[in-house]
Design a protein around this nucleic acid. Sequence first.
DNA 1: GTACTTGCAAAGGATTTGCAGTCCG
DNA 2: CGGACTGCAAATCCTTTGCAAGTAC
Lengths: 137, 137
Amino acid sequence: MSSADLKKVGLKVTLPRLKVLEILEQEGEEHHLTAEDVYKILIEQGEEVGLATVYRVLTQFEQAGIVRRLNFENNISVFELDTGDNHDHLVCVKTGRVKEFVDPIIEERIKEIAKEKGYELSAHSLVIYGTLKDDLK
Amino acid sequence: MSSADLKKVGLKVTLPRLKVLEILEQEGEEHHLTAEDVYKILIEQGEEVGLATVYRVLTQFEQAGIVRRLNFENNISVFELDTGDNHDHLVCVKTGRVKEFVDPIIEERIKEIAKEKGYELSAHSLVIYGTLKDDLK
DNA sequence: GTACTTGCAAAGGATTTGCAGTCCG
DNA sequence: CGGACTGCAAATCCTTTGCAAGTAC
């Protein structure tokens, strides 16, 4: 993910955009960040950005298909790089930690259900909430 | 669903509560209402309630297990009576219409996945987005 | 009566927008 | 340069809260 990718989707290569991308890449699979999280990291790194810019950049990335926006229970959005594998999420209700998974059986059933009911499938969102047993103490 | 049910969960039987229940019942399976929707219906019916009360009542109902609160893509909450069948939802991206379904295979897989990953399952949320073919025009 | 409820207005948190200045290409 | 981009502050949207008055039991 680099400046070339930004150009490809018609976005100018600017510092805020590169930095946001960088952060999302570093955080990797285990982290799913709030716009505010991204903003705080930027500030910690000494960058001068506004929270509004972070929101704008993330929204643009979402529209460009670079980023996925997820809405968990609490009605707050978290963002992750869109790796194209279309995975789902498992959220620990105790720690908030997020794990990703892909399940072909569910994937398949979702397609069938859409078909059965006469819908042209466009997307789905599956979140499993539970307590990671190690976290039960 | 009646005044007896309210008492059972420790809520006093008041007009706003009865009216909200009534509306949720009338709307039935096809409708999933926002707090604002419920409020508007109440106003149309000539009831004198505040939007805040609607939110409070719905939240109390949710905690009492009478109502389910769902969060679809846009970060706004919709409410439905909790019939206890733990169904999932299919949303038409064109009209916003919501259809319910229960799929034992998916249900089963979700349990297995939670187990595999070492989680104690507490809930899940599955929403399928698509276009109802009849709506394609 | 008294604790639970309510309506209203004000507060709150997350996200968006208006605008003047700044920067990429 | 010129349009795209940014930071800041103000605005917006949905939802919650504080408080004084009202109501169920």
